[in-house]
């Protein structure tokens, strides 16, 4: 009896095995997908937090920059500079300290003149109200 039983060959269901394999692959894929998504999620969270920390740091640095700028402005205020200069033996600049080497023409003056000329030209071109007023002024017939 025992020997007869031993001769029985179990049949394997190939379809079941195939299904199981597909099922396993799907499970592994899904699992991997979930793991990847979780990793991406936590990584995004982590980066967001780092980003926030950096933002805060930028704000703090800007704030510090403002404070330093304020200190610089206070330290270099004209009255402070004057005090320091006098302490070091400097004296107030006088006209005699200026040596004119060539025909003197300051850059500032030129640009100012140009501005002035430009403004007058614009005024003339534009037939503005001021022009009319001046016309009235010349004829002694100003009316407001």
């Amino acid at each position: 009896m025992k020997g007869r039983l031993q001769k029985i060959k179990r049949e394997t269901d190939v379809i079941t095995w195939r299904y199981s394999l597909v099922f396993l692959i799907v499970i592994v894929l899904l699992g991997t997908g979930f793991l990847y998504a979780a990793k991406a999620h936590f990584s995004a969270m982590n980066y967001s937090m780092k980003n926030e920390r950096l933002q805060k740091e930028i704000e703090e640095l800007e704030n510090n920059q403002r404070k330093l700028k304020l200190k610089k402005e206070i330290a270099s205020s004209p009255s402070e500079v004057e005090k320091a200069a006098r302490r070091l033996g400097f004296r107030q600049m006088s006209p005699q300290d200026i040596q004119v080497l060539s025909k003197a023409k300051s850059v500032n003056n030129n640009s100012s003149e140009e501005l002035s000329r430009e403004a007058v030209r614009r005024q003339k071109d534009g037939q503005s109200a001021e022009e009319k007023q001046i016309k009235y002024a010349k004829t002694g017939d100003l009316k407001e």
Binding site: Q92, M93, S94, P95, Q96, D97, I98, V100, A104, S106, N108, N109
Partner: peptide, 14 residues
Amino acid sequence: MEQILPELQIPPDE
């Protein structure tokens, strides 16, 4: 005037 003209880089003309 004595203080600001040199600062404005205006050469003495007197």
